Computed example of a mutant assay.
Amino acid sequence: MKRIFGRKKGILSEGYLWIIMAGLIYGLGRLSRRNPQLLERLYPASVNRALIRLLSRVTGIIPISLGELFVYFNVLLGIVLLVLLVIKIFTGGFVGLAYKTVTYISLLYVVFMLVFGFNYNRASVRQYLSLERTNYGHEELYALNEMLIERANQLREAVSEDESGVFTIKESHQEIFTMAQEGFERFSAEYPVFSGEYGIAKGIIASEPLNYTGITGIFMPFTGEANVNTKGPDLLFPATVIHEMAHQRGIAYENEANYLAYAVSSYHENPSIRYSGTILALISSMNALYRDSRESYRMLYDTYSEGVKRDLAAYNVFYKAYEGEVHEKATKVNDNYLKSNGQTQGVKSYGEMVDLLLEQFIQKNEAIR
Protein backbone atom coordinates (compact mmCIF):
# COMPACT_ATOMS: atom_id res chain seq x y z
CA MET A 1 0.00 0.00 0.00
CA LYS A 2 2.80 2.40 0.96
CA ARG A 3 4.68 1.85 -2.31
CA ILE A 4 1.54 2.59 -4.27
CA PHE A 5 0.39 5.57 -2.29
CA GLY A 6 3.74 6.71 -0.88
CA ARG A 7 4.38 10.45 -0.77
CA LYS A 8 7.63 10.50 -2.77
CA LYS A 9 8.60 7.07 -4.05
CA GLY A 10 5.21 5.61 -4.89
CA ILE A 11 4.09 5.06 -8.48
CA LEU A 12 1.39 7.69 -7.86
CA SER A 13 3.80 10.39 -6.71
CA GLU A 14 3.28 12.26 -10.00
CA GLY A 15 -0.39 11.50 -10.10
CA TYR A 16 -1.41 14.33 -12.39
CA LEU A 17 0.61 12.70 -15.20
CA TRP A 18 -1.46 9.53 -14.96
CA ILE A 19 -4.67 11.54 -14.87
CA ILE A 20 -3.62 13.53 -17.95
CA MET A 21 -2.57 10.35 -19.74
CA ALA A 22 -5.89 8.70 -18.91
CA GLY A 23 -7.70 11.70 -20.38
CA LEU A 24 -5.64 11.58 -23.56
CA ILE A 25 -6.14 7.86 -24.00
CA TYR A 26 -9.87 8.24 -23.40
CA GLY A 27 -9.97 10.88 -26.11
CA LEU A 28 -8.03 8.66 -28.49
CA GLY A 29 -10.40 5.83 -27.72
CA ARG A 30 -13.40 7.96 -28.65
CA LEU A 31 -11.75 9.08 -31.89
CA SER A 32 -10.58 5.62 -32.89
CA ARG A 33 -14.04 4.15 -32.33
CA ARG A 34 -15.16 6.14 -35.37
CA ASN A 35 -11.85 5.82 -37.21
CA PRO A 36 -10.08 2.45 -36.71
CA GLN A 37 -7.46 3.43 -39.30
CA LEU A 38 -6.26 6.19 -36.97
CA LEU A 39 -5.75 3.64 -34.20
CA GLU A 40 -3.72 1.39 -36.50
CA ARG A 41 -1.41 4.28 -37.35
CA LEU A 42 -0.87 5.27 -33.72
CA TYR A 43 -0.99 1.87 -32.03
CA PRO A 44 -0.88 -1.04 -34.51
CA ALA A 45 -2.60 -4.29 -33.61
CA SER A 46 0.68 -6.15 -34.17
CA VAL A 47 2.34 -4.07 -31.45
CA ASN A 48 -0.55 -4.70 -29.07
CA ARG A 49 -0.45 -8.45 -29.70
CA ALA A 50 3.30 -8.48 -29.08
CA LEU A 51 2.71 -6.73 -25.74
CA ILE A 52 0.04 -9.24 -24.66
CA ARG A 53 2.19 -12.13 -25.85
CA LEU A 54 5.15 -10.96 -23.76
CA LEU A 55 2.97 -10.24 -20.72
CA SER A 56 1.18 -13.60 -20.89
CA ARG A 57 4.44 -15.52 -21.24
CA VAL A 58 5.90 -13.81 -18.19
CA THR A 59 2.82 -14.37 -16.03
CA GLY A 60 2.47 -17.86 -17.51
CA ILE A 61 5.52 -18.93 -15.54
CA ILE A 62 3.35 -18.91 -12.41
CA PRO A 63 0.86 -21.83 -12.36
CA ILE A 64 -1.93 -19.92 -10.58
CA SER A 65 -3.83 -16.95 -11.97
CA LEU A 66 -2.08 -13.73 -11.01
CA GLY A 67 -4.96 -11.83 -12.57
CA GLU A 68 -7.42 -13.44 -10.19
CA LEU A 69 -5.23 -12.50 -7.22
CA PHE A 70 -4.99 -8.98 -8.68
CA VAL A 71 -8.79 -8.74 -8.68
CA TYR A 72 -9.00 -9.84 -5.05
CA PHE A 73 -6.31 -7.32 -4.09
CA ASN A 74 -8.17 -4.45 -5.76
CA VAL A 75 -11.51 -5.42 -4.25
CA LEU A 76 -9.88 -5.39 -0.80
CA LEU A 77 -8.07 -2.16 -1.62
CA GLY A 78 -11.32 -0.56 -2.75
CA ILE A 79 -13.06 -1.45 0.51
CA VAL A 80 -10.15 -0.10 2.57
CA LEU A 81 -10.03 3.13 0.58
CA LEU A 82 -13.76 3.64 0.88
CA VAL A 83 -13.56 3.31 4.66
CA LEU A 84 -10.53 5.61 4.84
CA LEU A 85 -12.19 8.23 2.65
CA VAL A 86 -15.22 8.31 4.94
CA ILE A 87 -12.99 8.63 8.00
CA LYS A 88 -10.91 11.41 6.45
CA ILE A 89 -14.02 13.46 5.73
CA PHE A 90 -14.13 14.03 9.49
CA THR A 91 -10.43 13.85 10.39
CA GLY A 92 -8.85 15.70 7.45
CA GLY A 93 -6.78 14.56 4.51
CA PHE A 94 -9.75 13.61 2.33
CA VAL A 95 -8.63 15.61 -0.71
CA GLY A 96 -5.14 14.11 -0.70
CA LEU A 97 -6.37 10.53 -0.48
CA ALA A 98 -9.10 11.15 -3.06
CA TYR A 99 -6.46 12.55 -5.42
CA LYS A 100 -4.30 9.44 -5.03
CA THR A 101 -7.32 7.19 -5.48
CA VAL A 102 -8.25 8.91 -8.74
CA THR A 103 -4.62 8.64 -9.82
CA TYR A 104 -4.56 4.90 -9.16
CA ILE A 105 -7.81 4.41 -11.08
CA SER A 106 -6.28 6.43 -13.95
CA LEU A 107 -3.22 4.18 -13.90
CA LEU A 108 -5.40 1.07 -14.12
CA TYR A 109 -7.36 2.59 -16.99
CA VAL A 110 -4.19 3.43 -18.93
CA VAL A 111 -2.83 -0.11 -18.51
CA PHE A 112 -6.18 -1.66 -19.45
CA MET A 113 -6.45 0.37 -22.64
CA LEU A 114 -2.86 -0.24 -23.72
CA VAL A 115 -3.02 -3.98 -23.10
CA PHE A 116 -6.57 -4.70 -24.28
CA GLY A 117 -9.11 -1.89 -24.33
CA PHE A 118 -8.15 -0.41 -27.70
CA ASN A 119 -8.95 -3.73 -29.36
CA TYR A 120 -12.65 -2.90 -29.03
CA ASN A 121 -12.09 -0.18 -31.62
CA ARG A 122 -10.18 -2.23 -34.18
CA ALA A 123 -11.53 -3.58 -37.44
CA SER A 124 -13.54 -6.80 -37.42
CA VAL A 125 -11.91 -10.23 -37.37
CA ARG A 126 -13.45 -10.60 -40.83
CA GLN A 127 -10.47 -8.84 -42.37
CA TYR A 128 -8.18 -11.68 -41.26
CA LEU A 129 -10.52 -14.40 -42.51
CA SER A 130 -11.37 -12.83 -45.89
CA LEU A 131 -15.07 -12.61 -45.07
CA GLU A 132 -17.44 -9.87 -46.18
CA ARG A 133 -20.15 -8.55 -43.86
CA THR A 134 -23.42 -9.71 -45.42
CA ASN A 135 -26.96 -10.30 -44.22
CA TYR A 136 -28.47 -13.68 -45.02
CA GLY A 137 -32.01 -14.97 -44.73
CA HIS A 138 -33.97 -17.90 -43.37
CA GLU A 139 -32.95 -20.36 -46.08
CA GLU A 140 -29.23 -19.89 -45.44
CA LEU A 141 -29.69 -20.00 -41.67
CA TYR A 142 -31.66 -23.25 -41.94
CA ALA A 143 -28.94 -24.80 -44.13
CA LEU A 144 -26.23 -23.72 -41.69
CA ASN A 145 -28.05 -25.41 -38.83
CA GLU A 146 -28.50 -28.59 -40.85
CA MET A 147 -24.75 -28.72 -41.42
CA LEU A 148 -23.90 -28.06 -37.76
CA ILE A 149 -26.36 -30.69 -36.54
CA GLU A 150 -24.93 -33.27 -38.92
CA ARG A 151 -21.42 -32.49 -37.71
CA ALA A 152 -22.42 -32.53 -34.03
CA ASN A 153 -24.20 -35.88 -34.44
CA GLN A 154 -21.16 -37.41 -36.14
CA LEU A 155 -18.68 -36.08 -33.59
CA ARG A 156 -20.90 -37.22 -30.70
CA GLU A 157 -20.31 -40.81 -31.74
CA ALA A 158 -16.54 -40.38 -31.34
CA VAL A 159 -16.45 -38.88 -27.82
CA SER A 160 -16.68 -40.37 -24.34
CA GLU A 161 -19.67 -40.27 -22.01
CA ASP A 162 -20.21 -40.93 -18.32
CA GLU A 163 -22.46 -43.47 -16.64
CA SER A 164 -25.45 -41.18 -17.26
CA GLY A 165 -24.77 -41.10 -20.98
CA VAL A 166 -23.55 -37.48 -20.89
CA PHE A 167 -20.47 -36.22 -22.74
CA THR A 168 -17.32 -36.22 -20.63
CA ILE A 169 -13.70 -35.31 -21.33
CA LYS A 170 -11.09 -37.99 -20.69
CA GLU A 171 -8.20 -35.51 -20.55
CA SER A 172 -7.35 -33.37 -17.52
CA HIS A 173 -7.95 -29.63 -17.56
CA GLN A 174 -4.22 -29.03 -17.90
CA GLU A 175 -4.09 -31.32 -20.91
CA ILE A 176 -6.96 -29.43 -22.54
CA PHE A 177 -5.11 -26.15 -21.93
CA THR A 178 -2.08 -27.54 -23.77
CA MET A 179 -4.16 -29.10 -26.55
CA ALA A 180 -5.96 -25.79 -27.12
CA GLN A 181 -2.58 -24.20 -27.82
CA GLU A 182 -2.00 -26.88 -30.45
CA GLY A 183 -5.32 -25.95 -32.06
CA PHE A 184 -4.18 -22.36 -32.49
CA GLU A 185 -0.90 -23.56 -33.98
CA ARG A 186 -2.77 -25.50 -36.67
CA PHE A 187 -5.19 -22.62 -37.26
CA SER A 188 -2.42 -20.02 -37.50
CA ALA A 189 -0.69 -22.03 -40.22
CA GLU A 190 -3.51 -20.79 -42.47
CA TYR A 191 -4.14 -17.52 -40.62
CA PRO A 192 -0.66 -16.31 -39.47
CA VAL A 193 -2.03 -13.27 -37.65
CA PHE A 194 -3.04 -15.60 -34.80
CA SER A 195 0.38 -17.22 -34.52
CA GLY A 196 2.85 -16.78 -31.68
CA GLU A 197 3.56 -18.30 -28.30
CA TYR A 198 1.31 -17.12 -25.48
CA GLY A 199 1.01 -18.10 -21.84
CA ILE A 200 -1.05 -21.23 -21.28
CA ALA A 201 -4.64 -20.91 -20.01
CA LYS A 202 -5.24 -21.25 -16.27
CA GLY A 203 -8.07 -22.46 -14.07
CA ILE A 204 -9.85 -20.01 -11.79
CA ILE A 205 -9.39 -20.68 -8.08
CA ALA A 206 -12.90 -19.51 -7.22
CA SER A 207 -14.54 -21.52 -10.01
CA GLU A 208 -17.36 -22.92 -7.89
CA PRO A 209 -18.63 -19.52 -6.64
CA LEU A 210 -18.27 -18.22 -10.19
CA ASN A 211 -20.96 -20.67 -11.33
CA TYR A 212 -23.51 -18.47 -9.57
CA THR A 213 -22.62 -15.65 -11.97
CA GLY A 214 -22.88 -17.77 -15.10
CA ILE A 215 -19.33 -16.78 -16.04
CA THR A 216 -17.34 -19.60 -17.65
CA GLY A 217 -14.13 -17.74 -18.41
CA ILE A 218 -12.37 -14.40 -17.95
CA PHE A 219 -9.50 -12.78 -19.82
CA MET A 220 -7.33 -10.82 -17.37
CA PRO A 221 -6.04 -7.75 -19.29
CA PHE A 222 -3.62 -6.67 -16.55
CA THR A 223 -1.75 -9.97 -16.68
CA GLY A 224 -2.54 -11.25 -20.18
CA GLU A 225 -3.96 -14.48 -18.75
CA ALA A 226 -6.76 -16.60 -20.24
CA ASN A 227 -8.67 -17.86 -17.18
CA VAL A 228 -11.33 -20.58 -17.27
CA ASN A 229 -13.93 -21.87 -14.83
CA THR A 230 -12.97 -25.49 -14.12
CA LYS A 231 -16.08 -26.44 -12.12
CA GLY A 232 -18.64 -26.33 -14.91
CA PRO A 233 -19.86 -29.01 -17.35
CA ASP A 234 -17.41 -30.53 -19.82
CA LEU A 235 -19.63 -29.73 -22.80
CA LEU A 236 -18.34 -26.21 -23.56
CA PHE A 237 -15.12 -26.33 -21.52
CA PRO A 238 -12.69 -26.74 -24.48
CA ALA A 239 -14.56 -24.09 -26.48
CA THR A 240 -14.36 -21.71 -23.52
CA VAL A 241 -10.61 -22.25 -23.23
CA ILE A 242 -10.14 -21.34 -26.90
CA HIS A 243 -12.53 -18.39 -26.52
CA GLU A 244 -10.41 -16.89 -23.74
CA MET A 245 -7.23 -17.59 -25.72
CA ALA A 246 -8.77 -15.65 -28.62
CA HIS A 247 -8.98 -12.64 -26.29
CA GLN A 248 -5.27 -13.15 -25.59
CA ARG A 249 -4.69 -12.70 -29.31
CA GLY A 250 -6.36 -9.30 -29.28
CA ILE A 251 -9.92 -10.33 -30.21
CA ALA A 252 -12.04 -8.17 -27.91
CA TYR A 253 -15.62 -8.77 -28.98
CA GLU A 254 -17.41 -11.77 -27.50
CA ASN A 255 -19.10 -12.74 -30.76
CA GLU A 256 -15.77 -12.84 -32.60
CA ALA A 257 -14.07 -14.79 -29.79
CA ASN A 258 -16.97 -17.27 -29.89
CA TYR A 259 -16.57 -17.67 -33.62
CA LEU A 260 -12.84 -18.29 -33.25
CA ALA A 261 -13.60 -20.87 -30.56
CA TYR A 262 -15.58 -22.76 -33.20
CA ALA A 263 -13.12 -22.12 -36.02
CA VAL A 264 -9.98 -23.08 -34.08
CA SER A 265 -11.62 -26.15 -32.55
CA SER A 266 -12.53 -27.29 -36.08
CA TYR A 267 -8.83 -27.45 -36.91
CA HIS A 268 -8.07 -29.73 -33.98
CA GLU A 269 -7.69 -33.48 -34.31
CA ASN A 270 -9.21 -34.24 -30.91
CA PRO A 271 -12.95 -35.10 -31.34
CA SER A 272 -13.88 -33.75 -27.89
CA ILE A 273 -12.47 -30.32 -28.73
CA ARG A 274 -14.11 -30.35 -32.15
CA TYR A 275 -17.42 -31.42 -30.61
CA SER A 276 -17.31 -28.68 -27.95
CA GLY A 277 -16.69 -25.97 -30.54
CA THR A 278 -19.43 -27.32 -32.81
CA ILE A 279 -21.95 -27.36 -29.97
CA LEU A 280 -21.08 -23.75 -29.14
CA ALA A 281 -21.76 -22.76 -32.75
CA LEU A 282 -24.92 -24.90 -32.88
CA ILE A 283 -26.39 -23.32 -29.73
CA SER A 284 -25.94 -19.82 -31.14
CA SER A 285 -27.17 -20.72 -34.60
CA MET A 286 -30.23 -22.63 -33.36
CA ASN A 287 -31.11 -19.77 -31.01
CA ALA A 288 -31.09 -17.45 -34.02
CA LEU A 289 -33.30 -19.89 -35.92
CA TYR A 290 -35.71 -20.08 -32.96
CA ARG A 291 -36.13 -16.30 -33.07
CA ASP A 292 -36.66 -16.51 -36.83
CA SER A 293 -39.00 -19.50 -36.99
CA ARG A 294 -40.01 -21.71 -34.09
CA GLU A 295 -41.45 -24.26 -36.47
CA SER A 296 -38.13 -24.64 -38.29
CA TYR A 297 -36.34 -24.82 -34.96
CA ARG A 298 -38.52 -27.71 -33.78
CA MET A 299 -38.09 -29.58 -37.06
CA LEU A 300 -34.30 -29.42 -36.83
CA TYR A 301 -34.19 -30.10 -33.10
CA ASP A 302 -35.83 -33.45 -33.80
CA THR A 303 -32.79 -34.38 -35.90
CA TYR A 304 -30.42 -34.10 -32.93
CA SER A 305 -28.94 -37.44 -31.91
CA GLU A 306 -30.02 -38.71 -28.50
CA GLY A 307 -26.49 -38.14 -27.21
CA VAL A 308 -26.52 -34.47 -28.23
CA LYS A 309 -29.94 -34.02 -26.61
CA ARG A 310 -28.68 -35.57 -23.35
CA ASP A 311 -25.60 -33.33 -23.33
CA LEU A 312 -27.60 -30.13 -23.83
CA ALA A 313 -30.20 -31.13 -21.26
CA ALA A 314 -27.52 -31.91 -18.66
CA TYR A 315 -25.82 -28.58 -19.37
CA ASN A 316 -29.05 -26.65 -18.79
CA VAL A 317 -29.85 -28.59 -15.61
CA PHE A 318 -26.40 -27.86 -14.20
CA TYR A 319 -26.70 -24.08 -14.51
CA LYS A 320 -30.37 -24.01 -13.52
CA ALA A 321 -29.27 -24.86 -9.98
CA TYR A 322 -27.10 -21.72 -9.87
CA GLU A 323 -29.62 -19.21 -11.19
CA GLY A 324 -30.70 -16.40 -8.89
CA GLU A 325 -30.06 -12.80 -7.90
CA VAL A 326 -26.27 -13.13 -8.14
CA HIS A 327 -26.55 -14.43 -11.70
CA GLU A 328 -28.86 -11.58 -12.69
CA LYS A 329 -26.58 -8.91 -11.20
CA ALA A 330 -23.47 -10.43 -12.78
CA THR A 331 -25.22 -10.47 -16.15
CA LYS A 332 -26.14 -6.80 -15.74
CA VAL A 333 -22.55 -5.88 -14.81
CA ASN A 334 -21.22 -7.78 -17.83
CA ASP A 335 -23.84 -6.15 -20.03
CA ASN A 336 -22.79 -2.67 -18.89
CA TYR A 337 -19.11 -3.53 -19.39
CA LEU A 338 -19.72 -4.64 -22.97
CA LYS A 339 -21.79 -1.55 -23.77
CA SER A 340 -19.16 0.76 -22.26
CA ASN A 341 -16.64 -0.68 -24.70
CA GLY A 342 -18.75 -0.13 -27.79
CA GLN A 343 -20.61 -3.43 -27.87
CA THR A 344 -23.92 -1.59 -28.01
CA GLN A 345 -26.12 -4.67 -27.88
CA GLY A 346 -24.51 -5.84 -24.66
CA VAL A 347 -24.85 -9.52 -23.85
CA LYS A 348 -27.27 -9.94 -26.76
CA SER A 349 -24.32 -9.52 -29.10
CA TYR A 350 -23.17 -13.03 -28.19
CA GLY A 351 -25.62 -14.26 -30.85
CA GLU A 352 -23.91 -12.22 -33.56
CA MET A 353 -21.36 -14.97 -34.12
CA VAL A 354 -24.04 -16.47 -36.35
CA ASP A 355 -23.30 -13.77 -38.92
CA LEU A 356 -19.70 -14.97 -39.09
CA LEU A 357 -20.81 -18.58 -39.29
CA LEU A 358 -23.14 -17.76 -42.16
CA GLU A 359 -20.51 -15.73 -43.99
CA GLN A 360 -18.03 -18.59 -43.77
CA PHE A 361 -20.68 -21.12 -44.78
CA ILE A 362 -22.04 -19.17 -47.75
CA GLN A 363 -19.15 -17.09 -49.06
CA LYS A 364 -16.63 -19.91 -49.01
CA ASN A 365 -19.24 -22.57 -49.76
CA GLU A 366 -18.09 -24.49 -46.73
CA ALA A 367 -17.89 -24.52 -42.99
CA ILE A 368 -14.46 -24.19 -41.44
CA ARG A 369 -12.70 -27.50 -42.10
Rank of each mutant, 00 (worst) to 15 (best):
T278H: 07
T278V: 09
T278N: 05
I279R: 02
L282R: 03
L282N: 03
I283N: 10
I283P: 01
I283A: 02
I283R: 11
S284K: 14
N287W: 03
N287Q: 13
N287E: 12
A288H: 09
A288F: 07
L289S: 03
Y290V: 02
Y290R: 15
R291D: 13
R291S: 13
R291W: 14
R291Q: 15
S293F: 03
S293T: 10
R294G: 15
R294W: 04
R294F: 11
E295A: 11
E295L: 11
E295Q: 15
E295M: 07
E295V: 12
S296E: 15
S296R: 11
Y297H: 14
R298V: 11
R298N: 12
M299C: 04
M299G: 02
M299T: 14
M299S: 14
M299H: 12
Y301D: 06
Y301E: 14
D302L: 06
D302A: 14
T303L: 03
T303V: 11
T303N: 13
T303C: 03
Y304L: 12
Y304F: 15
S305R: 01
E306T: 12
E306Y: 11
G307F: 06
G307P: 00
G307W: 02
V308W: 01
V308C: 03
V308A: 11
V308M: 00
K309D: 13
K309Q: 14
R310Y: 04
D311E: 02
D311L: 07
D311H: 04
L312Y: 08
L312H: 07
L312R: 09
L312C: 08
L312S: 06
A313N: 06
A313P: 00
A313Y: 06
A314Q: 01
A314N: 05
A314L: 06
Y315L: 08
Y315V: 03
Y315D: 07
V317G: 06
Y319H: 05
Y319C: 07
Y319V: 10
Y319D: 10
Y319R: 08
K320W: 05
K320N: 12
K320S: 13
K320H: 10
A321W: 07
Y322E: 12
Y322C: 04
Y322S: 08
E323G: 13
G324C: 11
G324H: 09
E325K: 14
E325G: 04
V326T: 05
V326G: 03
V326M: 10
V326I: 15
H327P: 01
H327F: 10
H327T: 00
E328M: 08
E328Y: 03
E328L: 09
A330N: 03
T331V: 05
K332T: 09
N334L: 12
N334D: 08
